[in-house]
């Protein structure tokens, strides 16, 4: 049984111009201890998928369909009280801006200790001792002295370390990390990613890593889901998605990333841009930008299907008996 299972998740935002579907029929699962990367460009619905799982979608957005199962138990329909307990105890969250997670009025030690007391039932003394250990573990120098410091007394990188400690201290089974390094400088990014990887491996925590940075995913994730216009375009083992993408969008996306190791005269580009949620094309949402488009793509929407590789892609090129040379 997978740790997290998302089935046909659908998230809608009612607006005065009609209902926008930000996440449309998305299904995937994460096994225990696995790192699933979710990539996509802005507006692809990757962050909303993450926030939908922990039920923190900003109103008027709402989950309009599908199921979310954590260790076989549905969590998309439980009471908000209960959900609050699931968040923190069973699912930790790390967001792009550490300041949204940290309360500026409380010392970081108090925030860590309170989280552990609430979810693990520790005594004051134990909680404090453990908080110091966590801070040491995430690499805060002089943890014992700085435990009573406030968030604003830390640099951005250090704050994100504190947030990681806060997300992991209740020993959750799953952490949802939404662009955890985007706001940080490159040299700090590497430190934070390495830290997250190490801790999750040590504690056997599964991670859903949401980011737009393919490099981070390539280094961190076991499997990766590529999202486009609210749907998963391709999902599979990270190496195969990066090196042997089957969906034309994934292929184009990988080609458009400038490389550090070899230089090309021109980058491969995907013309046009991701459609706005207000006018997602009929059929496959990628069809107007696709170089291999054929008639069926313009009419019928593909679901994820097996390809000739290890990945699954939502692309009619891989439909059984479909003319492959249609491009």
């Amino acid at each position: 049984m997978p740790l997290l299972e998302v089935r046909n998740l659908r998230v809608e935002f009612p607006t005065r111009r009609g209902v926008l579907t930000a996440v449309d029929d998305v299904s995937f699962s994460i096994d225990e201890g696995e790192v699933l990367g979710v990539v996509g460009e802005s507006g692809a619905g990757k962050s909303i998928t993450g926030t939908a799982i922990i039920r923190l979608i900003e109103p008027p957005g709402r989950i309009a369909g599908g199921e979310v199962l954590l260790a076989g138990r549905r969590i998309d329909n439980i009471a908000p009280e209960e959900m609050r307990h699931v968040r923190g105890k069973q699912i930790g969250a790390i967001f792009q801006d550490p300041l949204t997670t940290l309360n500026p009025l409380y010392s970081i030690g108090r925030q860590l200790a309170e989280t552990m007391q609430t979810h693990l039932g520790l005594s004051d003394r134990d909680a404090r001792a453990r908080a110091i250990r966590w801070l040491e573990d995430v690499g805060i120098p002089g943890a014992a002295q700085r435990i009573d410091a406030y968030p604003h007394q830390f640099s951005g990188g250090m704050r994100q370390r504190v947030v990681i400690a806060l997300a992991l201290c209740a020993e959750p089974k799953l952490v949802i990390a939404d662009e955890p390094t985007t706001a940080l400088d490159v040299s700090i990014q590497a430190q934070v990613i390495a830290l997250l990887k190490r801790l999750c491996r040590e504690h056997g925590t599964a991670v859903m890593l949401v980011t737009h940075d393919m490099g981070v995913i390539a280094e961190t994730a076991d499997r990766v889901a590529v999202m486009y216009a609210g749907r998963i375009a391709e999902i599979g083992p990270v190496r195969d998605v990066v090196k042997g993408a089957r969906h034309p969008y994934t292929e184009g996306l990988m080609g458009s990333i400038p490389s550090l190791t070899h230089r090309v005269e021109r980058l491969r580009q995907i013309d046009g841009s991701m459609p706005r949620l207000t006018d997602i094309p009929r059929g496959c949402a990628f069809n107007p930008r696709c170089t291999k488009v054929f008639d069926r793509c313009r009419i019928e929407r593909p679901d994820l299907m097996a390809t000739d590789g290890p990945t699954r892609a939502a692309c009619w090129l891989y439909a059984k008996g479909e003319a492959r040379d249609a491009a």
């Binding site: 690499g139 640099s155 990188g157 250090m158 400088d185 490159v186 040299s187 700090i188 990014q189 590497a190 430190q191 990613i193 390495a194 940075d213 393919m214 490099g215 981070v216 390539a218 280094e219 961190t220 990270v238 190496r239 990066v242 090196k243 990988m254 990333i257 490389s259 550090l260 190791t261």
Partner: peptide
């Protein structure tokens, strides 16, 4: 060297790195 070492790259899937500590 630190900068080049720090950047995650598509080519280096799964590679282990030892990031240099400290901040600017």
């Amino acid at each position: 060297r630190l900068l080049l070492e720090a950047i995650p790259d598509l080519e280096m899937t799964g590679r282990q790195r030892t990031p240099v500590g400290g901040e600017v």
